[in-house]
Structures are given as structure tokens and as C-alpha cells.
Design a protein around this nucleic acid. Sequence first.
DNA 1: CAACATTCTCTTGCATGGCAGAGACGGTAG
DNA 2: CTACCGTCTCTGCCATGCAAGAGAATGTTG
Lengths: 228, 228
Amino acid sequence: MTAGTGGSANKPIQARVIAEMRGRIISGEIDPGALLSELALAEEFGVSRTPVREALKQLQTEGLVEIRPRVGTFVTAPSRREITELFEMKELLEGAAARLLARRGRVPEIDRLQENLAQADAAVARDDRDRYAELVGEFHDLVITGADNRKLEAHYRTLMNQLAYSRLVTTSLSRPGRPGQSDREHHLVVELILEKDGDSAEQVMREHVRASRRALMAGLPLPGRRDD
Amino acid sequence: MTAGTGGSANKPIQARVIAEMRGRIISGEIDPGALLSELALAEEFGVSRTPVREALKQLQTEGLVEIRPRVGTFVTAPSRREITELFEMKELLEGAAARLLARRGRVPEIDRLQENLAQADAAVARDDRDRYAELVGEFHDLVITGADNRKLEAHYRTLMNQLAYSRLVTTSLSRPGRPGQSDREHHLVVELILEKDGDSAEQVMREHVRASRRALMAGLPLPGRRDD
DNA sequence: CAACATTCTCTTGCATGGCAGAGACGGTAG
DNA sequence: CTACCGTCTCTGCCATGCAAGAGAATGTTG
């Protein structure tokens, strides 16, 4: 990433700050709980504190950082309970998306899903976990966008950002045998979508998300901080 | 909520601005499409432009206003398509909440729901639409909070704000016979929740939301601006 | 040595002022 | 009368400066 740091600084400066910070957080480049100093960020980006401050404020409403007044801005560290809730929502939204996509019939996203599956099969065959993780992200993305509901998509993106999912998915796939099973579940979902069987597609998709969650939670160190 | 509007201006000033502006928008006190000038708002609240600006930025991420760079900040007017999408999400979330609530068993929210129904029956009997509209809001609120999922609740609130639902619900209930039917549907949902029949509760809840939407769209002038 | 009060520095919160771009208005030429 | 162009005012955007609260470090006292 970090594309476009050179030259094209034409765009609104503060949007760039937001995008950059969000990228760092969801990629796990910054540890949860870390302090984000307005001043330090301002100096790093070569701008004043004001746009940085506004960027952090927006990231707060997205649930990525927590601003404790007069104290500091910290990267949010989801509690175990929050992670459970987020997965519950993920299951809900992706299931609904699968149903909606099945109802829509043949749309471009379907073709791209099949292409995605082909590449995923190859990645699993050569045990290329990084590539497969990437394809998993694309798969779920395609299902969501294929639902053709911008609001659902927006809420989904917020959700995934809060989960820092791109960091978690590798953990989930490190479980032996998980990539293969995940791939098979993806195939089944697409198959049901092609058959326009919305009910089953939703059901299988939800079960897939639950399985993914189990694989994740099992291989996660996750200090049992506060369960409250 | 909305407690402490009088006197105690001790709290962070900008949070007050956000709450006040949000209230005005979702109550319909400000017409959609209207221009919100930073300067004018700052003078009205007796503060500087900075906190007002940050407040507007937050409202933008909540989807309540649209900031067109170098032009101005405007109250968003959801297109017909967006309204459809929002209701699709509403149906999804409330259905899921009903299911989750049914699974939880006997919790305080259940008692409050039954009390709500009793008062709603009375309101319908004396044809008190304003009071019934209020109770409808409380009913759906109880179902959501009863699901015991903070993330779901947060997304739901965002949704309802974007819909400016409190303004719409009166329109919906102005259809002859609608309050009575709505009340009966509420009764059925609670009944199914009490029986711990999550599947049926979700299904009936979703159907209820669809019916509510139909009653609303029918009685809505809604200039067919852009369907894109 | 331990517990407490105090200062001191760090952080964000808010106010103010200058700047640039977008759109509206009016004047002028055809 | 119409179309075009320059100007002018409006808007948000960003930089800077001051103030206030929170927490840590430290000096003080038992």
C-alpha cells in the first residue's frame, strides 16, 4: 500500500490522513491500545493538528479508535464480548447478502465469484495461505457487493474494520485443514446461489461464518482481559 | 436520553452541538436539502466554528448530512432507493433481534414489552395516534435492546436516524386501520417470543416491518426525485 | 520505609485568523 | 434579447495560540 504518497497530494489532505490511519489500524500495523498523539501524527504527515484531530474524530465514530477526553486517543481493543457480537453481526449481514444475491439472478458478481473460486482452489492446492487469505477477503466482498444494497455494504465495512478482520483471517486459516474446508464451504454457497435457493444460501453462509469464527477463536491467544 | 438539556452546560461543548443538531435533523425540524452554515451555527450556539465543524463531520459519518467540499453542508435527503435499502436493513436487524430475544428467555425487556402492549391497546382504543406512535417507537426499541447485542443496537440507531423514522412513523399510522393491525402484529411477535419460537418470531417481525413499510410508502408524497 | 499531597508535564479542547475554491451576480458585447 | 465573461462574496479548509484537565513523577511527612 502507501500508494499515492508521491506527487498526487491534490486531494483533500484530511481525507488522506483518514485513509492512511484507517489502513494502519485495520492492517494491525498499530497495536490495539496504542496511543495516537495528535501532535506526533501532525508532524509525521506534515500538517497541522486540526485535520489530524478531525480524522481521529471520524475514526472514533467508525469505532476504530477511542478518544478519552483530555487524556488521549487510543486504538480500540475489542473485548471478547465485542468480538462475539461483531461475528454475530457478520453472520447476519453475510447471510442476508447471500440470500439477496441469490434472488438477483445472474449478475456480474456471480462470474467473478466463480473465477475467485478457481483461483482459490489453486491457492489451496499449492498451500499458499497468504494468497488464499486474500481471495477469502475478495469472496466475502463479492457476496456483499453482489447484494446490491449500499447500506448493507456500508455497515459491513464498518464491522470488518472494527474487527481488523484482515489481520484475523490469517490466524483463522493457520488451523490445519481449515483452508480446504473453508474453500469447500465457499463452493457450496455459490452453488446454492446459482440455484437461486436463497434460503439455503443464507443458512449455509451463516454456518460458514460460524465455522470461521470457531477456527479463529480456537487459534487466538486473546488475553482474557475483561469479559464483562 | 435528552436529559440535562437545561442548565448543565458543563459537559463537552461539542457533544452538545452534535446532540442538538442530530435532534433537529431526525425530528424533521430542519428540511432535507437545507444548507447548514458553520458560521451561522457557531453564532447561534455561541461557540467557535471549530467544534461546529467537527460536529458536522461526525454527522456526516452518521449519514445525516452531506458535506460538499468548498460548497457547503446539507441535510441529506434519502433517495427512494436509499429508503428501500434502509427498510431492508431495518427488517433484517429487527427480525434478528426478535430471534435473539426469544432465545434469551425471560428477561426484563419482556415484561416491559407486555406493559407496552397494554398501554398500546389503550391508546388504539381511544384513537390516540400520537401516543401510539410513541409506544411503537418504544416497542421496537425494547426488542432491539432486548437482543443484548450492542453492535446491533448501534447499527440500528444509525439506521433509524438516517430514516428520520420518528417523523415517518406518524405518516405510516395515519392510514386508516393501520394502528389496529400494527398493534395486533406486535402482540403476535411478543407471543412467539414468549414461546421461545425464534424462527417464527423473526419471520413475523420481518413481515411486520414490511407491512409497516408498505403503509408508509403508500401515504408518502415523496417527490420521485432520482431513482437511479 | 511507606503513604500522601503537590507540582509539573503531557494530552486534548476550543478560539481565532488567513487562505483558496466554487458559485452567484452583474456588466458588457454580440 | 441573449450569451458570455469577469468579479465578488460565500463557503469550508487549515494553521496557530492559549487554556484546562488528567496522570505521572517527585518531594514531603508520618
